[in-house]
Write a protein that binds this DNA or RNA. Structure first.
Length: 563
RNA sequence: UGAGCGAUGGUGUAACGGCAGCACUACAGUUUUUGGAGCUGUUUGUCCAGGUUCGAAUCCUGGUCGCUCAACCA
């Protein structure tokens, strides 16, 4: 499935992580094993940035015949829920990956506790009674060294006693913490006696009320990787400054050392990715939920109609590096068009109907015409499309006074109705406002199927739907949620929601060919000349709902714009 | 203003001291029963200043700019 990227001389192009791994394999590090992991906290829904990480971690293991664990870093019981565990599992599966082991940081609470005792006995950890405010003061700032806690030199015995009593629930939340004894003058804030354990009398989604002390992420994460025998701990750039601390724990505890490798997270134009902002959009009903098709969440993207193949190809195409990057949302759209072009059945649907009467067509005749399901895939076959005297075409496909280079329907010019006939507009009917509400045409019976035996050409081909057989459907046109390329970059006096696109959702009542009557939920279609659409779960037996995944590329709008 | 990391066309990403390549975008042409898709081509780039070298995107020195770090969050 995965092909090697090639450079001009046909050598496989490796990203910097693959280079590190191949070097490690050459040196027989970890017995040349490759074992990665995807370690989400189950406190929210995964988004497309996580998708990059998932594709990376699983892709690496696949490429080097290794393994990938799914591990939930659930060290904070106040935020984590089983609901999120389930959604994360579903999203990873949907992307096309199977994990080798499913683990939880909470599986390791016992081991982590034992290791805390080891550190205390080595004189490398101590119980500190400073309040949160005092601790912040003692910690200093990046440019100012911190100073040692007055509790830093308690005896091993006292620390042991206090820590066991913390675990036994003798103290209230926040009364004490266990800290590592490292260096308050380190330029790296994470080395200034970081907190290992805090007291939290809170029920945990997996361990229930077994514990009232919980390890901090920094204390749990690296050791969890170590326990699982992870060889390459791939994470985002902001964790680089944590690495010396993880290495410190590994060294003090004398356990397996995974190698952490940091890469730059994904940013997308016209998109916000921060958990806080996404939550705000959901909570304040700017969108219909986490799976709103406009959301950059994996469940949103899925409902929108993006495919796992497109997402994987996107992840491959954007590459991996350590430099900050902002990917053009257009590239994501390109990837989904590329995939759907090969797969999606073509159908004709009229979004903004204009009634067309073919005056010389028999009154009650319903003809069945052949249509090709997918010109990119012959195996997709053909279908019948009903044709009748009254049809709908797109309002945009008629212009009473055509502009230059407009070659769809206008009075006196012949156009092709796709898979049907050549027709020519003979007259129009207008309402009291002068707007065309009905078009009258003549057709050439000899052009059935879309070609004239005399070989004459037409410049335009338009889609249509038989009025007699049309299916009424709801179509949801989604557009980007934000109207500025960098909505994360909020001016000081503004809010990121100020730049939301007011037209990110338009709902239309459209006319579709009857083929769509039994379209299954989540099926992808191309509405010819319009875009790719996907059947939404909101569909009922009476009314199908279609989400626009992405529009087709529209070169007419460019021509039009130039005139 | 401390420490760490980074800088290659409009956007991403290659090059491992030897012709700056690829993808997306843009533009042009070709083709077309989707103004879709396809095909062909074109424009646009090594942050700056020095140095080493026959030769520097790559190595060295200095600067500039950007990102990250001061939750009992992850």
């Amino acid at each position: 499935m995965e092909e090697n990227r090639l450079n001009a001389s046909s050598k496989p192009v490796l990203n910097f992580i693959e280079e590190i791994i191949e070097e490690d394999i050459r040196n027989n590090k970890n017995d040349a094993r490759v074992h990665t992991r995807f370690p989400p906290e189950p406190n929210g829904y995964l988004h497309i940035g996580h998708a990059k990480s998932i594709c990376l971690n699983f892709g690496l293991a696949k490429k080097y015949n290794g393994k990938t664990n799914l591990r939930f870093d659930d060290t904070n019981p106040t935020k984590e829920e089983t609901e999120y565990v389930d959604s994360i599992r579903e999203d990873v599966k949907w992307l096309g990956f199977d994990w080798d082991g499913e683990y939880y940081a909470s599986d390791y609470f016992g081991q982590l506790y034992e290791w805390a005792l080891v550190l205390i006995k080595k004189g490398k950890a101590y119980v500190c009674d400073l309040t949160q405010e005092e601790a912040a003061e003692y910690r200093g700032t990046p440019t100012r060294p911190g100073k040692e806690s007055p509790f830093r030199n308690r005896s091993v015995e006292e620390n042991l006693d206090l820590f066991v009593r913390m675990k036994n629930g003798e103290f209230p939340d926040g009364a004490r913490v266990l800290r590592a004894k490292i260096d308050l003058t380190s330029p790296n804030m994470h080395m200034r006696d970081p907190i290992l354990y805090r007291i939290l009398h809170t029920e945990h989604h997996r361990t229930g009320n077994d514990w009232c002390i919980y390890p901090m992420y920094d204390y749990a994460h690296g050791q969890s990787d170590s326990i699982e025998g992870i060889t390459h701990s791939v994470c985002t750039l902001e964790f680089e400054v944590h690495r010396p601390l993880y290495d410190w724990f590994i060294k003090e505890l004398e356990i397996h050392a995974p190698q952490q490798i940091e890469f730059a997270r994904l940013n997308l134009t016209y998109t916000v990715m921060s958990k806080r902002k996404l939550l705000e959009l959901v909570r304040d009903n700017y969108v219909s939920g986490w799976d709103d098709p406009r959301m950059p969440t994996i469940c949103g993207i899925r409902r929108r109609g993006y495919t796992p193949e497109a997402m994987r190809n996107f992840a491959e195409t954007i590459g991996v590096a350590r430099r900050e990057n902002v990917i053009d949302i257009g590239l994501l759209e390109h990837c989904v068009r590329e995939d759907l072009n090969k797969k999606a059945i073509r159908v004709m649907t009229v979004l903004n109907p204009l009634k067309v009467v073919i005056d010389n067509y028999p009154e009650d005749l319903i003809d069945e015409l052949d249509a090709i399901n997918n010109p990119e895939d012959e195996s997709a076959g053909k279908r019948k499309v009903p044709f009748s005297k009254v049809i709908y075409i797109e309002k945009d496909d008629f212009m009473e006074v055509p502009s230059k280079k407009y070659f769809r329907m206008s009075p006196g010019t012949e156009v092709r109705l796709r898979y049907a006939y050549f027709v020519k507009c003979e007259s129009v009917v207008k309402d009291e406002n002068g707007e065309v509400i009905e078009v009258h045409c003549s057709y050439d019976p000899a052009s059935r199927g879309g070609n004239s035996p005399d070989g004459r050409k037409v410049k335009g081909t338009i889609h249509w739907v038989s009025a007699a057989k049309a299916l009424d459907v709801e179509v949801r046109l989604f557009d980007r949620l934000f109207s500025v390329p960098d909505p994360e970059n909020v001016p000081e006096d503004g809010n990121f929601k100020d730049s939301m696109n007011p037209d990110s959702l338009k709902i239309l009542n459209a006319k579709a060919e009857p083929y769509l009557k039994d379209a299954p939920v989540m099926t992808h279609y191309q509405f010819e000349r319009i875009g790719y659409f996907c059947v939404d779960a909101d569909s009922t037996d009476n009314k199908k709902v279609f989400n626009r995944t992405v529009s087709l590329k529209d070169s007419w709008s460019k021509i039009e714009g130039k005139q």
